[in-house]
Amino acid sequence: MWRLQISLFGILFAIVLMEATIIPSIWAPLRVDFFIGMIIGQIIYIPFSQGFPFVILSSLILQAFSGARLGLIPLLYILTFLAIEFLKNLVYLENTFTQLVMGIGFYLALMVVTAIFTDISLFEGKAASLIIGALLSGCVSPAMVYTVRRLQIAYE
């Protein structure tokens, strides 16, 4: 269990490096969310008792790399976790296409909710980066789910 959790946190720091440093250095307005895929992977392959604390701790770490009001990022990711946990009973999550669609959908949902919370026009000069970011987040989600699965199998 601990080895799995440590590996997952290692991947989380790689995600931060990608999201906060590498991708913005390529195109400053672009943000790609790798964490949604990790959340889906947690729900499918990791027990709730381990997955939920991981998401809480991870979102607190991610909060350090955002100017959002304290607690907003954890709140949004915990809501995402609970929403996907609920959808687990309705949708077959192990399907790659489903993971892709969920990656896009939740990326857009998170951005819209953040924009509503902060009363910002999300589309002012950001439409292109928003759409590309959503598509890329959708593409990386199945890869992140696969990574979680591989780790879970390796340490099982």
Partner: peptide, 14 residues
């Protein structure tokens, strides 16, 4: 600059 905001909405940096 070390890192930029992980969200598209906020404009902060580390």
């Amino acid at each position: 600059l070390l890192a930029q905001d992980i969200t598209l909405v906020f404009k902060t940096a580390v």
